[in-house]
């Protein structure tokens, strides 16, 4: 029982219950929603958001933010897509995509740490710049007709499971272990006020972002000029839903992953509940605000409670020592 209580106290389990709740409620309305196929499908379509949310969590932990993910994603997807189309090998295009992401991440990191630009502003500017470069590079056209071999990458199955799904899940677990178990990983949440640490994070994070770019490209099969547009808001919302604090220091990769799955599940849940798709944004917005506000109120109450307990304990201690003195 006590174990259950400590589990409940963890933010990500509350999120998980919420996710399960969505599935049960929608399942009651339309039982087709609860098939393995649907669940696997929503997991598969949230892969991209999971990867981005995990990357973003690392940045958020340090108290910074990265809203350039959409731009980086679009740019690296476009470049690698064009490489592939012109007969480049899959391996080379993957390396190039990751390199682009790493360079953009390094520029962001340097801007934030060396020039002391607020990370929000820095990455907002970068978002715009990368988007323009992408448009110039692709000449405003869609990158279509990617080789079949690349598209198959997202359809490959190993032991009945989707290969990308396995890779992403393994990645999530590795990052989670890195952040919670290793000394360097724990630095991320400790950084908070140590600005120089941020330079560390720019690079690795963008690697995840570019990984996401590849997943995106291979899933959709074509890259439009608006690829990745508006994605940043969804990803931030996903991380926040998963309990990652925007002021840094609080949150886990697992929570962000669940948050990403929730954001995508809402879309498919709406379809199964026969609600028109134009409700999507309004419902996500309501959910985001409700969850964040209740969470803030809950955590403040918990804070007050612990403070009260601490005060009580101190008063008791003083009484004990006074009694002690009297006894003497």
């Amino acid at each position: 029982m006590s174990k259950f209580k400590t589990l409940m106290k963890k933010r990500e389990f509350r999120t998980l219950f919420f996710l399960v709740g969505i599935f049960i409620i929608v399942g009651l309305i339309n039982s087709d929603f609860l098939t393995i196929g649907t669940i696997q499908n929503s997991l598969k379509s949230s892969l991209l958001y999971i990867v981005l949310a995990v990357g973003l969590t690392v940045v958020l932990l340090t108290g910074n933010i990265d809203i350039s993910v959409g731009g980086t994603l679009g740019l690296s997807a476009a470049v690698s897509g064009i490489l592939l189309k012109n007969g480049g090998s899959i391996f080379v295009s993957i390396v190039v995509a990751i390199l682009i992401g790493a360079i953009i991440g390094l520029i962001n990191g340097l801007g934030v740490t060396k020039l002391k630009i607020s990370s929000f502003i820095m990455t907002l500017g970068m978002l715009e710049i990368t988007r323009v470069i992408q448009v110039i590079y692709t000449d405003g056209q869609w990158v279509e007709n990617l080789p079949a071999g690349f598209k198959q990458l997202s359809q490959l199955n190993v032991l009945g499971f989707n290969l990308l799904l396995i890779i992403v899940m393994a990645g999530v677990i590795i990052v989670h272990l890195f952040l919670t178990r290793s000394r360097k990983g724990r630095y991320f949440s400790a950084i908070g006020d140590n600005v120089d640490g941020a330079i560390l994070l720019g690079v690795p994070v963008q690697r995840y972002v570019t990984l996401a770019g590849l997943i995106f490209a291979s899933q959709v099969g074509f890259i439009s000029t608006t690829a990745g547009l508006g994605i940043e808001m969804t990803v931030i919302a996903a991380a926040v839903l998963g309990g990652v604090s925007l002021s840094g220091g609080v949150g886990t990769v697992l929570g962000a992953t669940i948050g990403a799955v929730i954001m995508i599940s809402i879309n498919s849940a709406l379809i199964y509940m026969k609600i028109p798709a134009f409700w999507n944004d309004a419902i996500s917005g309501v959910l985001l605000i409700t969850i964040v506000v209740t969470d803030a109120i809950l955590s403040r109450r918990a804070d007050k409670q612990t403070k009260k307990e601490r005060l009580r304990a101190r008063v008791l201690q003083e009484e004990v020592s006074i009694n002690h003195a009297h006894a003497k």
Binding site: F120, I236, V286, L288, I289, V293
Partner: peptide
């Protein structure tokens, strides 16, 4: 930032 992000989606 979070509230107005939610507002951005909501409105």
């Amino acid at each position: 930032m979070v509230v107005t992000l939610g507002g951005l989606l909501l409105y």
